[in-house]
Nucleic acid binder design. Structure first.
Lengths: 217, 217
DNA sequence: CCAATTGTTGCAGACCATGCAAACTTTCTC
DNA sequence: GAGAAAGTTTGCATGGTCTGCAACAATTGG
């Protein structure tokens, strides 16, 4: 990978135009995050963010629809298409919960390199603590993921379109994921296996709480 | 209950001032809902809503912080205090899931009379279908409920403050509730017992999906 | 180097939302 | 009841968000 003044993350053989766009986007995002961590969501205007990133206010809105968008960024879009296909066709292990966890994890780690990813996650966590209103927007994004996940589950289990249980399972799985994320620190020492174990424990706890032999905890 | 030109729902022995306020609030809410169902969220301004309710634009904002607020209204606030206390102290049946369902149901039915309640719910459903953006706000409201619920669960189970499993259980319970609400029609023929059965079935399904003897569906 | 494409910018304008002070209405007190 | 106290409504001014448009600038491809 090659680094220059503008870009350090993407593929190299992109045109100048594309690289500049990525750079501007990142500059805006960074400006938004740092200013708002410093002064709070209400005390920073789009105008100031744009100025910090050396572009016009108007340009800000060419990149992000709202101020929140600049902060929450391009969080978990769709899962990796390959992972999705494997899940739908019953893989990789054949165990429903284990395979579900695999999919959930791919929502967390996207295409960027791992270090950047983790740093972004830590920043996002800080932002949420500073400005709880942002949780709102985050939940909305998760809702989109939930829909995708439900579709995948329906496909894997062969549920009929009227059957809405896949929606239920997807919704609760997203609860598990949200919950697990809250407990993560996104530090260097956190291994994927640890994350998997945590998610597994959460599912197990739900199974025990709601399952056939429901205890009182 | 006594009805007059302004108010038909609340207690009767309220002062004139209070009755007028309730009436204005309802007028604004009704105006917002009907205009937006008719023309869409983007094509109705606060000015128009206020005009329809015969108050000034400024007054609108004395009642609601945002346009969305007028639509989603005073949805599930806190659960009935009495129900909460009973749940916390291990009642009413002693079975965790059953008692949880009881609490969830009280979130759905508040102090208003049942017919109004159901009509409001139907309207809200229509609004959501017409304007999916509103789901966002609804999720945010549910998030508050989730926190309350988690606190109640923690209290009942005696979990220590660092134990975050109550949060997990509350989150998934809210998923169940959201899911169940989607399947309800809020018609006159829907009995509380039916609702309870549906929620129970959903919990059971989760228990089976994630439980010890996890099947592949 | 020219032409097509794409990105940036400023401007005008609509709308949302809040603070403030004046006018008005209800309630309280005597 | 009359008048003071408390609470509500309203207009006005202001600042901020966001969009459409048209001119301008930069990149790309031949």
């Amino acid at each position: 990978m090659v680094c220059n003044n503008w870009s350090c993350t993407g593929e190299d053989h992109l045109g100048l135009r594309e690289r500049k766009k990525q750079a501007t986007r990142r500059a805006l995002r960074d400006a938004a995050v740092s200013l708002i961590l410093e002064r709070g969501l209400e005390n920073v205007t789009v105008e100031e963010i744009a100025a910090e990133a050396d572009v016009s206010t108007r340009t800000f809105f060419n990149y992000f629809a709202t101020k929140e968008d600049a902060l929450l960024g391009d969080v978990p879009g769709t899962p990796d298409e390959e992972v999705r296909r494997e899940f739908v066709s019953g893989g990789p292990t054949g165990d429903f919960v284990e395979d579900l966890i695999t999919v959930l994890i791919t929502f967390l780690v996207s295409t960027d390199d791992l270090a950047t990813q983790r740093a972004d996650m830590r920043l996002r966590k800080k932002l949420m603590e500073r400005e709880p209103q942002l949780v709102r927007g985050m939940l909305a994004r998760f809702h989109n993921v939930e829909m995708e996940l439900a579709a995948a589950i329906a496909e894997r289990t062969g549920a009929s379109p009227e059957d809405d249980r896949p929606l239920l399972v997807a919704a609760s799985a997203m609860s598990v994921m949200r919950h697990t994320m809250k407990g993560l620190h996104f530090s260097e020492s956190e291994e994927t296996a640890d994350v998997r174990a945590k998610i597994r424990a959460a599912f197990r706890h739900l199974g025990e709480a709601y399952g056939p032999s429901a205890p009182t905890s």
